[in-house]
Amino acid sequence: MTAVLPAKDLVTRLSGVFAGKLEEAGRDSVLVRADALLEVAAYLKNTAGFAFDYFNMVTAADYYQYFEVVYHLTSTRHNHSVFIKVRCHNRANPSVPSVVPLWQGADFQEREVFDLFGIRFEGHPDLKRIVLWEGFDGYPLRKDWNR
């Protein structure tokens, strides 16, 4: 069974290295500060005890006050998984660091989130719309989008 690592344990295990940069967000997701995402992700991928080598998915949700970007990672070695969340409060220009340098599988998916939510992924090699056409007005999965 793929064990979802409880957020409480994960925060305890990571707090020595990333004090103040992450907190619990629900039973099994960890909220990470946007500016620390890349180093936390790299640590989770490259540390033997975690070894999150498999990038399941990234998506986002619009909660009006903020956008929440959700990452789901799995370790094929330990067969455990984790949900990482990042919040962007700047609605006019939301942005999070891109994790494409760590997992190539994030490439198309980050483009999709950019396309439908308008969240910029800083450092993405080729950030452009993917399912909608260039010049499309607005970001349809935002809650305030009006057709």
């Binding site: 399941n56 998915m57 998506t59 949700a61 619009d62 789901h72 190539q104 599988g105 490439d107 198309f108 998916q109 999709e112 999965l141």
Partner: peptide, 16 residues
Amino acid sequence: PYRCHVRATSFINLSA
């Protein structure tokens, strides 16, 4: 549903 995302296999399998 407030939000429903599909982790679409075909889409991600094209990554490589």
